[in-house]
Write a protein that binds this DNA or RNA. Structure first.
Lengths: 230, 230
DNA sequence: TATAATCTTTAAAAACTTATTAAAGCCGAC
DNA sequence: GTCGGCTTTAATAAGTTTTTAAAGATTATA
């Protein structure tokens, strides 16, 4: 999998925001959201999303103001305006404010997704964004399926990589066996529960100094596992 | 002084092409144009415009074909599709073909100009000079389809050249098999996946000292390949 | 402490992915 | 048309990963 892109959804219509958020998450985007125009700027400045989906008519603060403020504050990523009023003069104003694109409501969700996927493709060349995760004395490089331990590179298989990624996303939390299997094999798989153990064993051999007394990948009997860091 | 941007207008409607050309010239763009779908590709490849305004329904060659061909041949600048039929499914297809944006006819010229001015603003930073790429002890000259290794010239076939170019653009990143095939053969090609292996093998024979233990062109099992430099 | 439930480990089979070879197809230059 | 180089495919080999089964270990608790 490629880098995960972050999208901010700024939309006050609960229904639409829900739809957008869920669909985009399902498409593999990292989504942050707010209905509040005033809160939007903080959210965006703090999270630096790759794309902002911005409703143009918000209660409180106007989309145009938000857009302008963001640009003034040096925000350079993509801002896509969502608007119902598609008068030409508005579009020109929006472009002048630094909007990268607009979509007119109501829009087809499939088209929006195709558009975002497309924009992101052009983005991904210029991105250096590493999502290297560090834990203990190790570095996990999910893109290359590898682990650096004491300066030594250890290759991970696809499943090991996927499992470790999930653990690292949910560090210090007890992870339910079923949830984990769900993440690794998806909805209706009929893989044996023992198979998971197998992968855990192999992962432990790769990451633990003493696989018999795991320091990181601990089992929580009756529930699942817990990835302990610090 | 700012750079002058070059726009190619590919449109068979004499009237509209005239309007576009004159207005864009008046706005300070460098405009090249043709009404002929078949001639469009040559025009674009030779002039490398920053933006292509492409009518989607041309006599002779379809806009979709032109777009696909351009992308496959490594054209990376902006392609804006102009279309009267704005069915959702078409938009999705267009995005998949690598269109950067679309405008629906009839469009307001002021809006188009505002849009182009805006796009150009985001463009102005990036531009490369020579396209000779060096890696390891080699030089890749994509224009002449050749490789200099230890002072010796090695000829590359068109596909080898295209593949290597893509690898060198995405050095040290894991490249998905499908993405690579997409780049090499375009959107809906039905080339066998083994065919790619074949080309990889031959490319390795040309660039690697020891093709069996590749130093540069490494495979990432389950995903694709990675071109490793340094 | 015995028993049941759960987890770990091992080894081997099954499934899958990539590499290689050889042959056929395609296309342009002559 | 024929030749030669490039591309594609098919078949097969080689190498890895994933899964399963079965046995062993551990833990909880009756």
């Amino acid at each position: 999998m490629n880098k995960t892109f972050k999208i901010a959804v700024i939309e006050d219509d609960e229904n639409l925001r829900f739809l957008l958020t869920h669909r985009l998450k399902a498409e593999g985007y990292d989504v942050i959201e707010t209905s509040d125009g005033a809160a939007a700027e903080t959210l965006i400045n703090e999270n630096q999303p790759d794309i902002v989906l911005l409703d143009w008519m918000l209660p409180g603060k106007q989309g145009s103001d938000i857009c302008n403020d963001l640009r003034v504050n040096g925000f350079e990523n993509m801002i896509i305006m969502m608007t119902a009023k598609a008068q030409d003069v508005d579009k020109i104003e929006a472009y002048n404010l630094g909007v990268s694109d607009y979509v007119t409501k109501p829009f087809n969700m499939d088209v929006l997704v195709a558009m975002l996927d497309n924009k992101v493709k052009f983005l991904s060349n210029s991105n250096t964004g590493s999502d290297i995760q560090r834990f203990g004395d190790m570095e996990h490089h999910p893109n290359t399926h590898s682990l650096i331990k004491n300066g030594k590179k250890i290759e991970l298989t696809i499943l090991e990589n996927r499992i470790l990624l999930y653990f690292l996303k949910n560090v210090n939390q007890v992870i339910n066996r079923d949830d984990l299997m769900m993440v690794v094999w998806g909805y209706n798989s009929d893989v044996n529960t023992r198979t998971l153990d197998m992968h855990i064993v192999r992962l432990r051999k790769k990451i633990e100094d003493n696989p018999d007394g795991p320091k990181y990948l601990q089992t929580v009997r009756g529930i699942g596992y817990k990835f302990v860091v610090d």
